[in-house]
């Protein structure tokens, strides 16, 4: 296991990547990306068994991750690049014409690390369930992870999938919700409240764990416990409390940075709070 400081340094560099990528093309979604940087860093650098330099779509013998809330592609791309799926300098092509780093993750351009397109919300949990079933059929004991947004829980397909996973006891699946309480139009509670999300999933037959997704030690520990609890005839949901915009003070505490790029001055202010730890692309 890597030490926590090392993972935190990685997450800081990834946060730098995120704001630089979004600034460079003046579009994209920094808020949720920053909030999920700790989780994805821990997942890819500490938790999952992956084979980044020889990416295969089937991922046999590997853990799989699906990003359902595809708009936080900046954090996904940065983590994949930093983990070695492709060269970090390619991050500079984000959202540019002819780039493999499409606005939302896609497979068409064959970017290593992406296994399904996402962006139209609500679809990733179903795909992850299918991939988890494929692992069982193949006798492959690795796990399938999927990250969803909390606003995304308003999509009906999520509940079809949640019902199925609970009823069929899909236990090689770990679903995670970025529970930051914010969506494009405002606080989730004001747009359409999710009510008691934990109770909802529990009533659908899931084991739910709440944790602080912006505390690296807690993220690492929670993922480790989830791993130990896998394959016990119950699907697992990690309700990950995060702060949208985490790491950049003026992007925190508001939904306004969900899908807005910083200008030059704001970029400088953001980078001043995120020291270069590994080296910029």
């Amino acid at each position: 296991m890597r030490d926590i400081q090392q993972l935190e340094n990685l997450a800081t560099q990834i946060r730098r990547d995120i704001v630089r990528m979004v600034h460079a093309c003046q579009s994209g979604h920094p808020g949720g990306s920053l909030g999920c940087a700790d989780f994805l860093t821990a997942l890819y650098f500490n938790q999952m068994k992956v084979n980044p330099t020889a990416f295969s779509m089937d991922g046999k013998g590997e853990d799989l991750f699906f990003l359902s809330n595809g708009h936080i592609s900046p954090v996904f791309y940065s983590v994949l690049a930093r983990r070695g799926y492709f060269e970090v300098k390619e991050l500079a092509t984000f959202r540019r014409i002819h780039s493999r780093l499409q606005g939302h993750p896609a497979t068409l351009e064959k970017l290593p690390g992406i296994r399904v397109a996402s962006g139209s919300l609500g679809q990733g949990l179903s795909v992850a369930i299918g991939a988890a079933q494929a692992k069982k059929l193949n006798g492959d004991d690795r796990l399938v992870y999927v990250l969803m947004g909390d606003g995304e829980q308003q999509e009906g397909q999520i509940w079809e999938a949640a019902l199925y996973a609970g009823a069929k006891k899909i236990d090689n699946l770990i679903a995670v919700i970025d529970y930051n309480g914010k969506q494009i139009d405002g606080p989730v509670d004001q747009v359409v409240s999710l009510g008691d999300l934990q109770a909802k999933y529990e009533s659908f037959g899931w084991k739910v764990t709440r944790f602080n997704g912006n505390n690296m030690a807690e993220v690492v520990k929670t993922l480790d416990i989830a791993l130990q609890q896998a394959n016990q005839q119950i699907p697992q949901l990690l309700l990950m409390e995060t702060e949208m915009g985490q790491g950049v003070d003026f992007m925190m505490g508001t939904h306004k940075w969900h899908g807005v790029a910083p200008n030059d001055e704001q970029l400088e202010k953001a980078l001043a709070q995120l020291p270069e730890t590994i080296g910029d692309y």
Partner: peptide, 26 residues
């Protein structure tokens, strides 16, 4: 029976699961 998935009346989930099952070679 091991290769048959009854998804219930939830077609969106069925299509998504089918996409996922291809990942693994099915």
């Amino acid at each position: 029976p091991d290769r048959f998935f009854q998804t219930g009346i939830s077609e969106a989930n069925m299509i998504g699961m089918a996409a996922g099952l291809t990942i693994g070679g099915f």
